[in-house]
C-alpha cells in the first residue's frame, strides 16, 4: 500500500472517529452539567428527602436551574440539609418555596423551586426556609387505607 493511500485511510479513520465522539457529545449527551460554569450554593432543610440523590436536578417552572450538590444529615435538628448548586444567571426571592417532587410515577426525585413575591433576593449560601418534604409512598397508601376504613365504619350503622 503506498504512502498517500495509507495517509488518506488513516485521515478518514481519525476523522470519523472524532466525528463519532462529537456526535456522542452533542447529540447523545447534553452539556447541561458542564455549561454551568458559574454557580452559587443555596441551602434548604427538609424533614424527609425521600429518594433524592446527589446530582439530581433542581427545577423552577420545569426548567433545570441547578443540581443537588450535597446532602447532609443535621444531627442536632434531625433534619436533612441539602446543598444546591444554582446557575449564577438565576436569582430567587427570599420567600422561595422548595419542595421535593417525583418526575413520573416511579421517576427520579427533584427539587422544585417556586418563587414567592418578596423583593429581596436570596444571596449565595442563603437558606430556603419554606420547604416541603418528599411524599413517601407508604405513608400515602396507609393514609388512604385508613381513610377508607374510617369511611366504611361511618356507613355501617
Amino acid at each position: 500500500m503506498n504512502r498517500t493511500t495509507l495517509d488518506l485511510w488513516v485521515g478518514f479513520f481519525v476523522a470519523i472517529g472524532i466525528g463519532a465522539l462529537l456526535f456522542l457529545a452533542l447529540k447523545v449527551g447534553s452539556f447541561a452539567g458542564v455549561q454551568m460554569d458559574e454557580s452559587y450554593i443555596l441551602k434548604a432543610r427538609f424533614d424527609n428527602i425521600g429518594g433524592l440523590k446527589v446530582r439530581g436536578p433542581v427545577k423552577s417552572a420545569g426548567v433545570v436551574v441547578g443540581r443537588v450538590a450535597e446532602i447532609r444529615f443535621d444531627a442536632a435538628a434531625y433534619e436533612a440539609e441539602v446543598l444546591m448548586k444554582i446557575d449564577a444567571r438565576y436569582v430567587f426571592p427570599k420567600d422561595t418555596f422548595a419542595s421535593i417532587y417525583t418526575s413520573g410515577l416511579l421517576g427520579d426525585q427533584y427539587i422544585g423551586l417556586e418563587p414567592g413575591g418578596e423583593e429581596e433576593k436570596l444571596a449565595a449560601d442563603g437558606t430556603i426556609f419554606k420547604t416541603q418534604s418528599a411524599v413517601v409512598l407508604e405513608k400515602m397508601v396507609s393514609q388512604f387505607l385508613f381513610n377508607k376504613a374510617a369511611e366504611g365504619q361511618e356507613t355501617q350503622p
Binding site: 457529545a25 447529540k27 447523545v28 449527551g29 447534553s30 447541561a32 452539567g33 458542564v34 446530582r55
Partner: peptide
C-alpha cells in the same frame, strides 16, 4: 427517544 437520551446522558459522567 432523543430527548430522554439527552436528558439522562451526562457529557462528563457518562461519555
Amino acid at each position: 427517544f432523543w430527548s430522554q437520551m439527552q436528558a439522562s446522558v451526562d457529557f462528563r459522567y457518562d461519555i
